[in-house]
Design a protein around this nucleic acid. Structure first.
Length: 282
DNA sequence: TTGTGTTTTATTGCCTCC
DNA sequence: GGAGGCAATAAAACACAA
């Protein structure tokens, strides 16, 4: 079918109006008044355009919104289709939508004056304009929700990546400590020699633990405390079923214990590179 | 051509505000 | 109480794959 809008185009006689009244082509539950456009824009609205009451109350019939359907202009097929299909919804034209979009960008709510102006300009019923804005706001809200969701998702992913990276770093540090511990035990087992400070390239010994290396007989200290180096638990904050707050707290306290074993060194105490976690604030 | 999913237009019912 | 907004929904129009 050709452009439906041509069916109602322009203004003219009352033939079609009476026909529509009889066949219930048009209806409306709207409280908005029937809009009669004296201007040229073609009527491009939907079927739910005119209330019968409005028609009956009948503005001046000579100023009727409609003109008779013209088969020459619309084709016989169109005519058949039109007259056999009551109450068809009609989409707004691209131009109408474009104008409505522009108006929506300026202000997404309508005041009565603007609604009337738009309806005049576009040849629509005020109610249609109102409905369009209503639906447009709903679409906007949906889009906004999607955007918010994407933002949250991105934040979550970034945090998760950071968390994973910290976990990895923690595991590496843990391995390093165990390695040192093994070395120490091995050294002790070979005759109780006083442990040496790490050579270049080896992990530095934290300040608070240097005394352990100054007194080989006190080595058990280290061994006892090393149990604290075990992770408090292996819970993973991003695992849905294990995101228990109490576990997180335990993990944090485990970290604190770890840091108590390796207190933060004073500035300039070591010349070597410090592990990254010593630069954390805690 | 047809079935199906999506978009658009419109209605209904409820709520809030003046 | 009426006007206007919103959520939920219906239904027509449209897009598109099979």
């Amino acid at each position: 079918m050709a452009d439906d809008s041509r069916v109602f185009a322009g203004a003219g006689g009352s033939t079609l109006v009476s026909l529509l009244q009889n066949q219930r082509f048009l209806h409306s539950s709207s409280s908005d008044t029937f809009f009669l456009s004296g201007a040229s824009p073609p009527f491009m609205g939907t079927s739910a355009i005119v209330s019968f009451e409005d028609i009956h109350r009948g503005s001046d019939p000579t100023n009727s919104f409609f003109r008779p359907f013209d088969p020459d202009e619309n084709g016989e097929d169109d005519a058949d289709e039109f007259f056999s299909q009551p109450e068809k919804k009609r989409r707004l034209t691209a131009n109408q939508v474009q104008s409505l979009e522009k108006s929506f960008e300026l202000e997404n709510k309508l005041d009565p004056e603007r609604k009337l102006q738009l309806s005049k300009d576009l040849g629509l019923q005020p109610r249609q304009v109102a409905i369009w804005f209503q639906n447009r706001r709903a679409r906007w809200k949906t889009k906004q929700l999607e955007k918010d969701y994407d933002t949250l998702q991105a934040d979550y992913n970034a945090l998760k990546a950071e968390f994973d990276s910290l976990l990895k770093e923690r595991d590496e540090l843990k391995s390093e400590v165990l390695l040192l511990k093994d070395k120490l035990l091995h050294t002790e087992g070979q005759g109780g020699e006083k442990p040496k400070l790490p050579a270049e390239g080896e992990a530095p010994i934290p300040a608070g633990k240097r005394e352990m290396f100054d007194s080989a007989s006190e080595s058990p200290h280290f061994t006892e405390q090393s149990s604290l180096l075990e992770p408090a638990d292996s819970s993973y904050a991003f695992e849905p079923d294990q995101s228990d707050l109490s576990q997180d707290e335990e993990d944090i306290s485990g970290s604190k214990r770890f840091l108590n074993v390796f207190p933060k060194p004073e500035m300039g105490e070591y010349s070597g590179n410090l592990p990254a976690f010593w630069s954390w604030s805690y």
